[in-house]
Design a protein around this nucleic acid. Structure first.
Lengths: 183, 183
DNA sequence: TTTGATTGTGAGTGATCACTACCTAAGTCG
DNA sequence: CGACTTAGGTAGTGATCACTCACAATCAAA
């Protein structure tokens, strides 16, 4: 080791790499991201990234898998003990409060959708998204119109975050955001 | 010239390159796309792409600029002679009918949002999207709730197309799509 | 203390790729 | 014809990058 940094368990390193990879992938995309940069941000050498995750694509899949899982957990926490429409409302509020400020996670989601031409990645995204929809339907008992509106609003928020217009700079964007709040 | 293909005007070649580039960028993204592949699909040599468009990023910007302009024109055609809520409805129907089947255009849009970390690209996307919102607001006279719902639905359709779940394979996706039709 | 597993790296490597420098052929007009 | 402009190509080039291989340091248990 170069300056003899502390040894960590492989599991800890994996988490660090996932954190670093989320940022890099969110900003530059699957192909634009550099494993060199990810390794540097995670504080390890670049070959070790490959030892831990196999290929760049596998790392990407691991990142979005974790991302979807955490989003599902966010929904579950928000809807805990609630049923029906108010569960949906709580989930929406939680998404606005916790997810919207986390630009990297939002952008990472967009990169995942954008990379869906690859069948392996598409499978991960489909499963992740499908789980979110299934949970929302189950806990809220709502049907197409409400569920669709819920997820449509979420996707609009993602796009707004991608464009970086959520800070009031663009009047039209502020109006779109205003329409996201429940009446 | 290799086998002496016909000479075309630069403007015609530019259109051919834009067509080819939309497909390549839509599938592989800004960084993943290869100018070699774009040139081949357009039927010219790779250096000529650079003579026509300068850099890969400039080509990407040209592609999404044209994409947004054509979407605006689609809206204008659909809303022609209409005002108020029915203009919005006609635009929505046109988007479903003409845009949804055009997978490349949808995916290209997603790639544009995903590439928004770059300031130049972000500007193009902001302007393009802002124009769409401004037109929808103006022609429909609608406010935040309706306009937001309109664009939110559009973004959900983009994501659904990205995931390739619009063909009835996934029940939850069919339910989401059902919720996109006006009640 | 030796053995074996685990954590980690330095030094490549072949491929790809955006982009350039320079050249050629085809139209066009006097 | 000759001069000029426009369309288009050939042949690189330097850089980047995903990924490999062989090796080293550290830990844990027998």
């Amino acid at each position: 080791m170069s300056i003899s940094a502390e040894r960590k368990t492989a599991a800890e390193r994996r988490e660090a790499v996932l954190d670093a990879a989320l940022d890099e992938f969110a900003l530059r995309g699957l192909d634009g991201a550099s494993t060199e940069a990810i390794a540097a941000a995670a504080g390890i050498s670049q070959p070790y990234v490959f030892r831990l995750f196999g290929t760049k694509k596998d790392l990407f899949k691991a990142v979005i898998t974790r991302c979807f899982r955490e989003t599902l957990e966010l929904f579950q926490r928000a809807a805990e003990g609630k049923r029906g429409p108010e569960a949906l409302e709580a989930m929406g509020a939680a998404y606005m409060d916790e997810m919207l400020p986390d630009r990297m996670r939002l952008r990472g989601q967009m990169q995942a959708y954008a990379a869906c031409d690859d069948p392996e990645i598409r499978d991960v995204v489909r499963n992740g998204y499908g789980d979110l929809v299934a949970y929302a339907e189950r806990v809220s008992g709502a049907g197409p119109p409400e569920i669709t509106q819920f997820f449509a609003t979420g996707m609009l928020l993602n796009v707004i975050a991608s464009m970086g217009v959520q800070d009031g700079g663009e009047p039209w964007a502020s109006r779109l955001l205003a329409g996201c709040e429940k009446p």
